[in-house]
Design a protein around this nucleic acid. Structure first.
Lengths: 336, 336
DNA sequence: TTGTAAGCGTTATCAA
DNA sequence: TTGATAACGCTTACAA
């Protein structure tokens, strides 16, 4: 049987409330008694019951993470980083995968809300209106990764600048006709990149961008995009993510098109696999670990702040446009 | 403010215990009152406080999952399947990544044990002794995936048969000298495959197996293995997992060695990426979704059984040696 | 069939 | 600095 604070109190010869204090607010207890309590707790292997604590304090100590697809390496990395950072801060994390089903997002958030202090929504696909409604109704703190929505707290990367870097790079290599193989139309990142495409093309002046439409953000989506790219006459293509780029590469090879000889390819994310394929992907690296850690930090700050009663200046709730970096590798080369 | 069972009771004009019954044991309540309660609960948006329920019942409704590395696609798939199945059964799941650090395993299990009804340990690297000690001390139910330990509940795939299938396939193609690029020595799957190698080689009689040692179960490990393979004179290689095989392929290409022309490669897992690389991987498919779902089902059975007081015959606690299937694709061909 | 009341194990308030 | 004691919100005998 697990021992409780009662047992510790009995063994240490103090009251149960002293046990509670000695363990969670050591400075409010005499050194001697604290040591007695600690000793007793240790020998009994005492471990506070978290449900009881939650019931008394109203705080769970847990976080929730909702993501579109764990089998997408980008989201796997987000998840890995989130749970690592959360644990370092003393929080456990519930993970819920929507399987790219928009309708699951509100459902999962509501479900998690019952047992967490806050939830991180990674790249949610729901509309702004639904998201706002969710925030109002879910009874929990929320923070977004790779998505913005009104003044909701969020952490994002600078996709617009990423597109600019990619386009400049391609232009410098001589490319003037560039295709874009987009991702899910509900994806905020995709919308950002499309916007970036427009402004960057204007800045550059002499490049034309060919929007090929939306594809599944996975290998097969890239395969599908490849044929459209080749038919478009573009000499370079920007792919929504690395997975698609890999599919694109595979299909190009099947069709006997050399990369980067006849076609240059740039993508987004820089997943671990990006350097593993051959040729290695030229890609705009999104700082996934930083996004995840920042989101956890911001969320825990929100939680602590509310707990301690919000003194001091109102904290900044978002970190927007974290810098991205173009990694030039093997899939881009001079136009010929 | 969230409403409680008190509020519902008041509105429905019944006692608080009737509310509890009406909602969790509807058959123990008159139809009329049940409807009143349900109605009140609905209009108030009542949602039972889980911490209070846990405190009263001793059950959390949560599961824990401990895995070596979320960025390994195999484990990402396990995680995805586990959380999907668990949610379908009404459980939320905590995910904890050890980052391939053996010492984190007991730590994380103990930590999770406080807030779950059971934990799934996926491919743990700790020794049998440590695992047994952990089970004894952790105060929670545990089930293993891809690992056995005494009579602990576990779910495994038939790696030995997988090796046999792979070796027969290679032998049929004319290969007689086959290298093995192993994974982490603490990996049970690796040990199984080594054992399978010995027995299969004996069965076949005329093939020699060259054990190249242990490599990191990732892309770079495969790169490292590649040079040893080429130096060994083997005409085919068995790689611990698909990730390594992909690394191996990349390095072979760098060195101008054609696959499958000059070297055949077989690996394990059949991660989504296996069909995405080129040539597509010939690999022994491990039924990852089935492993995960079976583990969840078995674990929830254990939980329910204990709750209801274990009537009926003792249930089987393990599902061992789930069938694996060799997928012949592009990385294997006749010896020449 | 329903209500009363006793826990479950903490934290937190208020006296002492 | 410490100790009673009242929450926290639910489930579950036991009585009615």
């Amino acid at each position: 049987m697990r021992s409780t604070a009662r047992d510790v109190a009995k063994m240490a010869g103090v009251s149960i409330s002293t046990v509670s204090r000695a363990l969670s607010a050591p400075q409010k207890v005499a050194t001697g008694t604290r040591q007695k309590v600690e000793q007793a707790a240790r020998t009994l292997g005492y471990d506070p019951n978290l449900a009881a604590r939650e019931l008394a304090t109203g705080r769970t100590g847990n976080l929730g993470l909702v993501i579109p697809d764990l089998e997408n390496p980008f989201f796997a990395s987000v998840t890995k980083a989130v749970q690592a950072r959360a644990r370092a801060a003393g929080h456990a994390v519930f993970v819920a995968d929507t399987d790219e089903d928009t309708h699951q997002e509100p459902r999962l958030v509501r479900s998690l809300a019952r047992q967490v202090d806050g939830v991180i929504l990674c790249a949610p696909r729901v509309t702004d209106a639904e998201l706002a409604a969710l925030e109002a109704a879910a009874h929990t703190r929320m923070i977004l990764i790779n998505r913005t929505c009104g003044d909701m707290p969020s952490v994002t990367a600078d996709h617009v600048d990423g597109v600019r870097q990619a386009l400049r790079h391609l232009r410098a290599l001589g490319h003037r006709h560039i295709a874009y193989a987009g991702g899910p139309s509900r994806s905020w990142a995709d919308q950002q990149r499309r916007a970036g495409l427009t402004t960057a093309a204007e800045e550059l002046g002499d490049v034309t961008v060919d929007d090929l439409g939306a594809f599944a953000p996975v290998f097969s989506g890239g395969m599908a995009a490849a044929d459209l790219v080749l038919a478009s006459g573009a000499t370079a293509v920007l792919a929504y993510n690395d997975l698609m780029a890999i599919g694109l590469l595979a299909r190009a090879r099947e069709r006997g098109v050399e990369v980067p000889g006849e076609l240059s390819v740039v993508s987004f994310d820089d997943i671990p696999l990006a350097v593993a394929v051959s040729p290695a992907l030229t890609t705009v690296a999104v700082p996934v670990g930083m996004l995840a850690r920042t989101a956890v930090d911001l969320l825990t700050e929100m939680i602590d702040e509310e707990r301690t009663g919000a003194v001091g200046p109102p904290a900044r709730r978002s970190r927007l446009d974290l810098p991205v970096e173009l990694k030039v590798r093997g899939t881009t080369g001079p136009r010929r």
